[in-house]
Design a protein around this nucleic acid. Structure first.
Lengths: 222, 222
DNA sequence: GTCTATATCGCGATAGAC
DNA sequence: GTCTATCGCGATATAGAC
């Protein structure tokens, strides 16, 4: 007769959800080893014993958090499927990827941390890898089809382009705080400018054309 | 009268050196938090107390290791100064950078770990950043001079190219174990092939040229 | 489900003999 | 300089009342 959703006494936003949220934030910020169950419990406003009641170990809690992050990351990737010339889709794709990372900073930091951890130290040895691999494969497929329509040079290895595109975005994401301090860098706080320049560079290269006179109008003002 | 180098009893390759070497390996492999002074002492074949005798804390030992890695990384960077057309020097530069990273895996893992650590959690807040910044600034200077001689397009931001070049190398370095598992990727174990493709892509772009006959003209597909 | 209280362990760091 | 032995603390994890 009551409106109780399940077994909860009457209940807050659900202790489990609070624990997961607190753990996600802390793990993303500081990494597994620098976060204690005490901190997580405090941040979630529950007792430490309660955390252990819901998650049998710290490791298991961490896994639950990483799984959540991977699922979320997978759900975010809706772009890329519909058609159109790649040279038009690519800027959006790159900018979308970068914006996703920045907006869902936490999720992606967790995923990147997991990918960069030595395989033997990792808890789940291929979850993040699988999610990342899917994104990668989809991007390669798009590039390959653009080669078949003749839009992109055939000598190029599409996996190479995908690596470069993703790598440049990941590197920007990881290093923006460091890059910000370099006097030469003006794009550290302008992700959309960065991805536009990135795609332009990838498409057109940086070598000067031989005859400036006959140049086919390339004035992508940066 | 004796041949004793200094104060050592008679001594092995020097306990301090052994400790530093063991610590460097372990820190590079697993990170600061997952390595204990016990492990380091065991790997260096000395007692834990002896480690504390030479380094007053774990933190200080770690700092000594990172400083050593940064110095080593700085010493490695001899390329880039002499002249010549950038389009010829760049492939060597990129390949050299990548080969350095792979050959001195340990040093660079340590430096990257330090760069990717949140600024507030970092022990030395700008050592690695300074070393990395020097490399970056030197590369930017080379690219900028190539723009002034007209070899590279003037609209391009040299810092952008440097970011892309370094980012692509760093990403390859970090992710080669993951990339190796992707069916589309054939270059994961061929760093020199990777850097050649990388520079070619950066110089010439991937867009198909409109008229293969008059190929100097590269038409923007956009 | 949630708490307080406690067990147990391994860590960084120290004391003091040799 | 090097060792053995040990301290003190905070970590994960558990026991058991409510």
């Amino acid at each position: 007769m009551t409106t109780e959703p399940s077994t909860s006494t009457r209940s807050e936003p659900d202790a489990v959800a609070r624990i997961l949220a607190a753990a996600a934030t802390l793990f993303a910020e500081h990494g597994y080893d620098r976060v204690s169950m005490n901190q997580i419990a405090a941040a979630a406003a529950v007792s430490k014993a309660n955390v252990f009641h819901h998650f049998s170990s710290k490791k298991e809690l961490y896994l639950a958090v990483v799984r959540g992050a991977c699922n979320a990351a997978e759900r975010l990737r809706t772009l890329g499927e519909p058609g159109g010339p790649v040279s038009r889709r690519l800027p959006d794709y790159a900018e979308g990827m970068l914006r996703d990372m920045l907006e869902h900073d936490q999720i992606h930091r967790l995923m990147m941390r997991e990918l960069l951890t030595d395989r033997d130290d990792r808890f789940d040895r291929d979850l993040a890898e699988r999610v990342f691999g899917d994104t990668f494969a989809r991007l390669v497929a798009i590039l390959r089809s653009a080669q078949e329509t003749g839009e992109l040079r055939r000598e190029i290895d599409p996996a190479m382009v995908a690596t470069l595109l993703i790598g440049a975005s990941v590197f920007f994401f990881q290093s923006r705080e460091v890059l910000r301090h370099f006097p030469d860098v003006r794009f550290a706080q302008d992700p959309s400018g960065y991805s536009r320049m990135l795609v332009d560079l990838l498409l057109n290269g940086m070598a000067a054309t031989a005859e400036p006179a006959t140049r086919k109008i390339r004035k992508d003002a940066v």
